[in-house]
Amino acid sequence: MIKVKNLYHSYSNDTNYSVEDINFEVEKGEIFGFLGPSGAGKSTTQKILIGLLPLQKGEASISDYNIRSPKEELFNLIGVSFEHPNVYRKLSGLENLEFYRKMFSVKTEDPMKLLRMVGLENAAKKKADGYSKGMLQRLVFVRSMINNPKIWFLDEPTSGLDPNSASEIKKVIKEKNKEGATIFLTTHNMYIADELCDRIAFINEGKIELIDSPRNLKLKYGEKLIKVEYKENGKLKKESFSMVNDKDREMLNSLISTGKIETMHSQEATLEEIFIKVTGRGLK
């Protein structure tokens, strides 16, 4: 559905590239995550794909539409949820959606149904001026669903949301994906990437460092640990033992044989730990 080959972009039109030699493909029905810290090149790549930035060098296509000269039909296929809540503040939530649906020449969703989906039905007729940040974020999110997009670009979709709203949004994303939507997710939130994505690309300083599924990344780069709570001399102790270190394995075996263990959990490396291991920097 999305093909990107040798993509470069420079804001200063020279060799100072913001994204450099980016290559990836997103399969139909896949949730593909672009994980990286601020300024890594996530948004630049997405902006090129959705036509907000020109394609300077390289090739990119969405559903076989060359994005160098994007056709009107392409924009009927895609939906974009922006991180910045860019809605008309003087219009109500409902008016914003009513306006936006008129821009499409494909079947659109009922605006009230969408607002209900994210708990904005009671604020439907209230001017967006009076919305909280979370409400605006939800409005932008459902606006991107108005044309039932086949390819859905989500930029930090849970940013600024409370845990309940974030959970609702994740649920909607999973449902849409089940219905067949291909999703391109840019985020610096390792948890949402881990939870939602089929594959993840680590992007750092404009370059893709690696692409794989969260599970494979953890297996490949993460150190398997066992976290144990045990009693010794009447005191509760906590310790982590590596599953690949012989000495740790021996100690764990001895704890198991003495029956001192109270709780025991396996622990995988987080995507952030793997990101740090691969790129040498964190996701913040």
Binding site: G51, L52, N76, I78, N86, V87, Y88, R89, M103, F104
Partner: peptide, 14 residues
């Protein structure tokens, strides 16, 4: 300022 034109640019509107 509202950046609404960005949302318009990713719609079929020209």
């Amino acid at each position: 300022d509202e950046e609404t034109i960005k949302a318009y640019r990713v719609s079929p509107g020209r």
